[in-house]
């Protein structure tokens, strides 16, 4: 059972990273335009800007 000493902190750390990533994405405005984001992925934006 000694392995738990590593595993539990690792599990909590990974969960914490996920939570931090979510809060960051929320702060940086990625949930502001859900409709637009769905369409942006379909756009051809690889042409150079005029």
């Amino acid at each position: 059972m000694n392995v738990l000493i590593y595993l539990i902190p690792i599990a909590l750390f990974m969960g914490g990273v996920g939570l931090a990533a979510f809060i960051w994405s929320l702060k940086s405005g990625q949930y502001d335009d859900l409709e637009g984001a769905a369409w942006r992925i379909l756009q051809d934006d690889d042409q150079p800007k005029p």
């Binding site: 909590l12 969960g15 914490g16 996920g18 939570l19 979510f22 809060i23 929320l26 702060k27 949930y31």
Partner: peptide
């Protein structure tokens, strides 16, 4: 909106673990 989402994220994290 952001406040509720943050609370939701915290609850989700805690619920999972």
């Amino acid at each position: 909106n952001a406040r509720l989402l943050r609370a939701l994220a915290v609850a989700g994290f805690a619920a999972g673990n």
